[in-house]
C-alpha cells in the first residue's frame, strides 16, 4: 500500500485528468445532447431565450439587423402566410444514387423480413 501511495504522490500532477472521470463523461454527454439538433427545443424554445433575442435585436436596431433564421420571429412577422413547404435545397433527382435512396418506399422495392406483398 505504501508503494502505491508514494506513486500517487509522485504522479499527482500527471494523473489529474483522471479525477472525476464520471462527472466529465456526464458533462460531455450533456454537451453532445445539447449540440445534437433537439427538435423540441427548436420548436418550443425556452422563455429565457426568446426574451434574450428580442433585447439583442432592439439593441442593434436601426441600421443593421442580425439575421438568425431560428430566432428571426420579428423578421418573418409580416411575410406570406402560406402552408407550402419550400425547403432551402432540393435533391437532384436525375442521379441514380438519389433515386436509389427511396427505392424501398415503393412496393417494387425490397421488403423487410416478415412482410410480403400479400
Amino acid at each position: 500500500h505504501s508503494e502505491r501511495e508514494s506513486d500517487e504522490e509522485e504522479e499527482q500532477g500527471a494523473l489529474k485528468w483522471k479525477e472525476g472521470l464520471q462527472q466529465k463523461a456526464a458533462e460531455a454527454f450533456l454537451r453532445q445532447q445539447a449540440a445534437a439538433p433537439n427538435l423540441r427545443k427548436l420548436v418550443y424554445g425556452s422563455v429565457v431565450e426568446a426574451q434574450e433575442s428580442e433585447e439583442e435585436e432592439e439593441e442593434l436596431g436601426g441600421l443593421f439587423r442580425v439575421s438568425r433564421p431560428q430566432q428571426s420571429k420579428k423578421v418573418q412577422a409580416n411575410t406570406l402566410d402560406c402552408s407550402r413547404f419550400h425547403p432551402d435545397t432540393f435533391h437532384n433527382w436525375d442521379v441514380e444514387e438519389m433515386l436509389d435512396s427511396i427505392r424501398d418506399c415503393f412496393v417494387t422495392g425490397k421488403w423487410e423480413e416478415g412482410h410480403d406483398a400479400a
Binding site: 427538435l39 423540441r40 420548436v43 418550443y44 435512396s101 418506399c105
Partner: peptide, 29 residues
C-alpha cells in the same frame, strides 16, 4: 413549427417530438 407554437399558446398542448434516423441499409429517404 409555428402551428405547434400556436397550439401550445391556445390549448397548452406540447408534443413529444422524436427524430427517427433511417437504418444503415434502408432506402427509405
Amino acid at each position: 413549427i409555428e402551428f405547434l407554437r400556436h397550439i401550445r399558446d391556445f390549448f397548452q398542448v406540447m408534443f413529444k417530438i422524436e427524430v427517427q434516423k433511417p437504418l444503415e441499409d434502408e432506402r427509405k429517404g
